[in-house]
């Protein structure tokens, strides 16, 4: 048994290791900025403003208080749609994965749902829910749901039968089956699916807002497009990407490291 001090130490070490591993990501982002700058110099600021001009514009938008309300609205819509799809998709996917019949029945439906373009859902949502808040939230939900569902189902299906027998032989109660058998295994399928769903959710929310609402980042993009304001458009894109990166690297990636500790331990 290890004492609490050991735990604090190892937690600190894990955080430092995690931050240190960020250098690679930062280097690759900076390389991308260099390419962007090069493209900007070739094309001129009207077609493609450089990273510095874009960041300056973003700073200006944040400083004047123009950007925050729109970002908050979009974030709320994303989180609502994504949250619903993560909850419902994971739960239903796990249930479907437990029964062969349900898995066989849902597989073609999932292929169908995955293949359906989000823009088609958006058109339907606009007809069903009008130009309000529900349309982007629903579109995000329906675009992310099959991704999460398929991940959860795959996770539940691929669980080793031998381990299931162990759980049966030692009469694990259902709560323990969930925490000590299903979830640890399924997490390695769920988290990549959640990350994909996160990316999809932001793409879809901006698209839905661009076409169906008067507020949010998408609507703001529509305005900057009509004013031929490339710098503002890029600034919005950068703001959305920053939120996306933050959600992935501050929330999902640490969660992944935590639940997959047992896999990572050998690599150190």
């Amino acid at each position: 048994m290890k004492g609490p001090w050991y735990r604090v130490q190892s937690a600190l070490a894990a955080i430092l290791t995690y931050l240190w591993s960020g250098w690679g990501a930062i280097a690759s982002l900076l390389l991308f900025c260099a390419l962007w700058e090069w493209g900007a110099q070739l094309n001129g600021p009207l077609v493609l403003p450089g990273p510095q001009a874009t960041l300056a514009q973003l700073w200006h938008m944040l400083d004047s208080g123009l950007a925050q309300p729109e970002l908050i609205i979009s974030t709320r819509r994303t989180l609502q749609g994504l949250g619903a799809s993560l909850l419902i998709g994971s739960a239903l996917g796990l249930l479907a994965g437990r029964s062969l019949t349900a898995a066989m029945l849902s597989r073609p439906l999932i292929t169908l749902l995955l293949g359906m373009p989000p823009i088609a859902w958006l058109v339907l949502a606009m007809l069903w829910f009008g130009m309000g808040d529900t349309t982007p939230v629903f579109t995000v939900f329906i675009a992310c749901f099959p991704i999460v569902f398929a991940g959860a189902m795959q996770g539940a299906r691929t669980l080793d039968n031998q381990l299931r027998r162990v759980a049966q032989a030692y009469r694990l109660p259902w709560r323990m089956q969930l925490t000590d058998l299903y979830l640890p295994h399924v997490m390695s399928y769920l988290i990549p699916a959640w990350i994909t769903a996160l990316g999809t959710s932001w793409k879809v929310v901006v698209m839905a807002e661009l076409l169906s609402t008067t507020d949010g980042v998408g609507a703001a993009l529509a305005v900057s497009r009509s004013q031929l304001d490339t710098a503002s458009s890029l600034a919005w894109v950068v703001a959305v990407l920053a939120l996306l990166l933050a959600a992935e690297y501050l929330l999902l990636e640490p969660l992944k490291r935590r639940v997959e500790r047992w896999r990572l331990e050998t690599e150190q």
Partner: peptide, 15 residues
């Protein structure tokens, strides 16, 4: 009380 030892160790890899 029942103890069961399987052909393979069948340990939970995450525990």
């Amino acid at each position: 009380g029942l103890g069961y030892m399987f052909q393979q160790p069948n340990l939970m890899p995450w525990l």
